[in-house]
Design a protein around this nucleic acid. Structure first.
Lengths: 233, 233
DNA sequence: GTCTATATTGTGATAGAC
DNA sequence: GTCTATCACAATATAGAC
């Protein structure tokens, strides 16, 4: 894991030469932060202006620049804080549960929920166009979101394999496959289309995905060679 | 299907009251078009300027505005033309082939190739942030790219089912599942990270995905109920 | 720390000569 | 149709008073 942005809010930093922040100052910084969050997430980086952010925060533009060196800095700080919350929204499957399909289903519902207009989706949307300009931010989001979720789930699968409940030679690959199966084109839809996917299709993705996954990786059936389920060649 | 943008390049339109375009004019329009493509695909809509596009095209800004009413118009025209080419890059599986796994593999390689820095990926990247502002463009890209590919593949699966080579109760769902299995997080990686996925992992996605898919949908094995492969509940 | 006012640059779009 | 020159405006960022 990379170093966490433990201290995101500036202004009250210890040892930066400035006096300790007063409550009113801290409050304004928070206001700017919230405003930046709202505006950036709605309009994206390029289409957002410091003017609008300042107005929404109820402060002057100069005050914004007193706490954040420039637009890029404010954007980075906002995204980093947003990423910290993302990992909390990812379901942690219970390896001790007896109901394996049930755990998969909880995981699946969590995945589809994340792609149904959640907050991580909004961050992703505004990160995509600027990822080349802010490579660090792309990495942070990737690590806190998809990578974290995939690794947790892979660990769950590894345990299920050890206990003989599934037969999974490559848990990391299997985790990516399961997530992808459930996700389908939900992310694509959410990015490009206005109308959300009908709930029945989401259900079909969930149940169909679980079925395909269990069919490929269940422990009982016909013998399987190493490297994956039933290599066709 | 929606109406195709059959005529993308303006200036020589019949019946618009202007005289037929001379060769030099047509050439300039093409230059503007190419420049717009390059600049928009690199910097996105908001971060691109008409100034830069004109300079790159080797013409004046006024000339650009003589052929395209405004920035939005130029962007739309460029994206629409770009979308027309996307469908051509999608592999059309051969339903008459005897080598089923081979066809799946060709399809899979095509999918991974599209997500390895192709052109459609660049269009997607710049479309994401402006999709709410240009809803039509999102739909066009979706229809010409993912939807078209999925439907073609679903038809292939339907035929394979009819001929008893696979057992697929829901070809549309199965097509989405296969594409997603192969894709994995390749698209996510390409959007957020600079380093491309190692080739060996791409191979694992392809072979593992084909294996999982065939395992779930092959015609021979244990009896399966309707609605999908082995509903776990 | 916070404000108002402003410097400076760059943008989309146009007028008018040729 | 194409250019040069320019308008009107919005953007980031800063000076200086309090």
């Amino acid at each position: 894991m990379t170093e966490h942005a433990q201290q995101v809010l500036p202004g009250s930093a210890v040892g930066d030469g400035t006096a300790p922040a007063r409550p009113s100052t801290l409050r304004k910084v928070q206001q700017i932060f919230d405003a930046a969050r709202t505006v950036f997430l709605e309009f994206g980086y390029d289409a957002s202006s410091m003017e609008v952010i300042a107005k929404r925060a109820g402060v002057s533009k100069a005050t914004v620049y007193a706490h954040f060196t420039n637009k890029e800095d404010l954007f980075e700080a906002m995204i980093r804080q947003e990423c910290q919350g993302i990992a909390d929204g990812i379901y942690q499957p219970d390896a001790n549960s007896e109901d394996l399909a049930g755990e998969l289903r909880k995981m699946a519902r969590n995945v589809t929920a994340l792609f149904a207009g959640g907050d991580g989706l909004a961050v992703y949307r505004i990160l995509v166009p600027v990822a080349p300009r802010f490579p660090r931010l792309g990495e942070v989001f990737y690590a806190e979101g998809p990578l974290s979720g995939r690794e947790n789930f892979a660990e769950f699968l590894r345990l299920a394999h050890q206990r003989g409940r599934l037969k999974i030679p490559n848990p990391t690959l299997a985790a990516e496959q399961f997530m992808s199966l459930i996700r389908g084109d939900l992310a694509l839809d959410a990015m490009l289309l206005v109308a959300p996917r009908p709930q029945e299709e989401v259900e079909a993705l969930i149940e169909g995905g679980i079925a395909v996954f269990l069919n490929a990786y269940r422990a009982d059936p016909a013998p399987q060679s190493t490297g994956g389920p039933q290599p066709p060649h």
